[in-house]
Nucleic acid binder design. Structure first.
Ligand SMILES: [Mn+2]
Ligand SMILES: [Mn+2]
Ligand SMILES: [Zn+2]
Ligand SMILES: [Zn+2]
Lengths: 143, 143
DNA sequence: AGCAATAATTGGAATTATTCTAATTCGAAG
DNA sequence: CTTCGAATTAGAATAATTCCAATTATTGCT
């Protein structure tokens, strides 16, 4: 059994014919493997250019289609910073995002042990949260 | 002295010639008063149509310009939900946003007494947060 | 294997929120 | 009143994303 959490990320060929209920076509495998390969939160365009290296015929529309399929099946997370182009993240564990304003780099940020955000919010009685996004921007301590 | 936090929101005429270092032109007063008038988090287009009622000659470009000026001077908050059009919020107190998926309505959500988000995140040493956005989506308990 | 039905991919056009541009108008200061 | 920088305006441009209609690939039979 292939562990998708393994340290070295899978090549497209190593991905099974179906993941989490999503049929893995050649293009979806390519796109997924690109997203898994680096934790740098690429945009759709980044994914497109990286995919083109191995699969020169893939189209941008397909990259968008594949990303949408992967996101809607919960295999990839879509990450938004204000009005910037969406980015894609293979880290499915509970985390949020910090963008270094100096470099633009996006870092995963985890919650401290046992913290559940909803516990700290005055939400209306009986609210069911289906989606949560926390985005931070700032500078990383320089000295 | 005019309180901008008063229960009944100011008409454009009631706004002073300068707020928080921003010169208040006729259009900026109109746009600001529209944003202050209702806590429904209007889009730029919403602000445009509402402004047109009192000021039929205002242009959409000006509404964008005014909103940008108000946001950059900290008089209005810009609120983003995923890839949806930006919305604008006159509530300057520390809060985040919940969108009811049923109706699309956006509600302000406050943090529980004395909670500081950054305390619950594993941020790299010395990180300076300049901007923070928390967006929730879900359903409001029906029964 | 052959065939029909279904789903995915593709290139290009369309959409749409937002930004840009260049011309005009405004308004504060002298 | 004139000047001059700033703001407003209409309309064009931009850019991320979505849509469309045609082609291609895959699946599930027989
Ligand atoms: Mn999201
Ligand atoms: Mn913001
Ligand atoms: Zn991430
Ligand atoms: Zn708000």
């Amino acid at each position: 059994m292939i562990s998708l959490e393994a340290n070295s990320s899978p090549t497209p060929e190593e991905l099974p014919p179906e993941i989490g209920g999503l049929r893995m076509t050649k293009q979806r495998r390519e796109v997924f493997s690109v997203v898994l390969a680096e934790r740098d939160h690429p945009t759709a365009n980044d994914v497109f250019s990286r995919s083109q290296k191995r699969m020169p015929t893939i189209s941008l529309a397909t990259v968008y289609n594949c990303l949408e399929a992967l996101v809607s099946h919960g295999l990839v997370r879509q990450v938004n910073f204000e009005r910037e182009p969406s980015r894609y993240c293979p880290n499915l564990s509970d985390h949020c995002h910090f963008q270094d304003e100096k470099t633009g780099t996006i870092h995963d940020v985890v919650f401290k042990e046992g913290v559940n955000l909803a516990d700290f919010l005055e939400l209306p009685q009986g609210t069911e949260i289906s989606h949560l996004e926390i985005s931070l921007k700032g500078r990383i301590g320089s000295h």
